[in-house]
């Protein structure tokens, strides 16, 4: 990896972290665990389409670890990590089969995978199947949020041409 690449990745990670920290300050109108706008994923989706899978994974790992530290909520790390891993797998599988104009769809599917990963982690950690009831609600809010972040990314990808 050359220095230019390294700097770009570091820059993207810090942009993602800044968005993450700012989003923490926005009060959440939905008092349901796991419901979030996830604006930091604009960077994730952008990286999925512009960088190699391993590089995207690096950005996401740095965001997760430092994000858990900055939010002062390290116990949420397991849930968000499970979500992020599932989300990345889903998006990386799909990115080849979607045309430029449908990047938002990739983000929606990523959001859905994220929610499924989160709920799986919650079921395992809480040792209770009751939390599955959250899945439909998370899928609805998650896909709306995913569509929004996906559209943002699509605009970004048009503007930032190589």
């Amino acid at each position: 990896m050359n220095i230019r690449r390294l700097t770009e990745l570091a820059l993207l990670s810090s942009v993602a972290l800044i968005i993450f920290v700012i989003e923490l300050r926005i009060p959440n109108p939905f008092p349901i665990p796991g419901v979030k706008l996830g604006l930091a994923n604009i960077v994730t989706v952008y990286a999925v389409f512009r960088y190699r899978p391993s590089e995207t994974a690096m950005i996401v790992t740095v965001r997760l670890l430092l994000g858990a530290m900055f939010s002062g909520n390290p116990s949420a790390l397991l849930y968000s990590a499970a979500g992020a891993i599932a989300c990345l797998c889903g998006m990386l599988l799909l990115r080849r089969s979607l045309p430029e104009k449908q990047i938002w769809l990739c983000s929606v599917i990523g959001a859905m995978f994220h929610n499924i990963g989160q709920i799986t982690a919650a079921v395992i950690l809480m040792q209770s199947c009751g939390v599955i009831a959250y899945l439909p609600i998370l899928l609805v809010t998650g896909s709306l949020a995913g569509a929004f972040t996906g559209l943002c990314t699509q605009l970004l990808l048009y503007r930032i041409k190589r």
Binding site: A76, L125, M126, S128, Y134
Partner: peptide
């Protein structure tokens, strides 16, 4: 169907 959960403390009220 929707319990109150506290994820950090692994607590469920249902």
């Amino acid at each position: 169907y929707l319990p109150i959960v506290c994820l950090p403390h692994k607590l469920i009220v249902r």
